[in-house]
């Protein structure tokens, strides 16, 4: 059996699951996930600051793990679960992280925020109440030029607290 081969400039038929919605796409194989999300799916919530893996702005989740969409090829992501910032809110309700970011002023220009939110979401999914230094480490791959990170760390702590309280309340019910 020959390996699957896609010629240059030839478009590949790719099935992508983004925010739990399946998409059938016909895109050139060298288009990165960042480009496909923004230019083919209209999901411009994923931002970009360098396209070289040096700033973290374009972070999305693949199977719940933060990765850089500027360095990921859709052809390699078939069958994986991709989450972008547009997939964070549930229905009309903001995700607790989004809520906390809004309340505490953790977003200033808002441009790094999508990537920061997704990275933080992955952290809180893995650790319910991470200490501040752990949050620092987890967000060390997301540059922000506006906030000095202080309010971002505060907001992640607040969201973690609320999420864990919610989870405890849910378990008690």
């Amino acid at each position: 059996m020959n390996p699957q081969t896609v010629e240059p400039r030839m478009k590949a038929r790719i099935a992508l699951s983004v925010n739990d919605q399946p998409h059938e796409l016909l895109v050139p194989v060298h288009k990165t996930l960042l480009e496909v999300l923004r230019e083919d799916l209209g999901l411009t919530g994923t931002k970009h600051g360098c396209e070289l893996g040096e700033c973290g702005t374009c972070t999305v989740l693949v199977d719940g793990e933060p990765v850089l969409s500027c360095l990921a090829l859709p052809v390699e992501l078939e069958g994986r679960r991709i989450t972008t910032v547009e997939g964070l809110a549930e229905g009309g309700r903001l995700h607790p992280l989004q809520q906390a970011f809004a309340e505490l002023g953790a977003a200033q220009c808002g441009y790094c925020t999508p990537g920061v939110l997704l990275t933080a979401q992955a952290l809180l999914a893995a650790e319910a109440l991470p200490p501040r230094d752990r949050i620092r480490e987890a967000l060390a791959g997301n540059l922000c030029r506006c906030t000095g990170y202080t309010k971002i760390l505060d907001a992640v702590e607040l969201a973690a607290l609320r999420l864990s309280r919610g989870a405890r309340a849910g378990a008690g019910r």
Binding site: V6, H30, E76
Partner: peptide, 13 residues
Amino acid sequence: MMRLPPFTYVAAR
């Protein structure tokens, strides 16, 4: 935006 040059992709199994 910095973009990749075109290439042929072989997905080896």
